[in-house]
Amino acid sequence: MVTEQYWFIFLNAALINNFVLSSFLGICPFLGVSGKISTASRMGAAVAFVMLIASLSAYAIHQALVALNAEYLQLISYIVVIASAVQLVEMVIKKFSPALFRALGIFLPLITTNCAILGLALFQTNRHYDFFQSLSFALGAGAGFTIALVVMAGIREELQLSSVPDVLKGAGITLMVAGILSMAFMGFAGLGGNG
């Protein structure tokens, strides 16, 4: 596990075990903000960015907690750090690029309760990734989340033009489409083993 190539970790998180479609992380934004491609891609970019920061800080915290022999604080410290990282990112973006800040809007603070971020931090700790492995894992997860969100948004934009049976309207048809997408992503399993 430890000797895995960085590229493979990246591909694994992005496609083979896609965070959204096969690990079920970040389903809420996946169902909630996948209505339009433009918002979906922005949301994806914001999540990918926070993932990167969260992954690096989670790595540092884990080292500190192991040194202090206080691993039971893991969950609490991760969630606090993610919440403050989101806050920090929000402030930095607001300062340096007000245009981007306005574009992301409400999505930024909502990222705190996105389970993809905490899941990423927990997975990389459970799998004992070193610094660079964590980095490629975070990049892959962010890419995978964005891909899933944008593909889903594309399908839903088309879906608005087609006639859906009344009983399936809304969440029902979205879940069915997600199921088919998830089956399609299973095809990527041929790229390598499951990690």
Binding site: L21, S22, S23, F24, D166, V167, L168, K169, A171, G172, I173, T174, L175, M176, A178, G179, I180, S182, M183, M186
Partner: peptide, 25 residues
């Protein structure tokens, strides 16, 4: 086997929502 794979989860939940919508209707 599909049912215990990720895709099955989406399908089953979608089917339940369909069922409840139909009952409500």
């Amino acid at each position: 086997t599909l049912m215990i794979l990720p895709g099955g989860a989406f399908f089953v939940l979608g089917a339940y929502l369909l069922l409840f919508n139909w009952l409500k209707k």
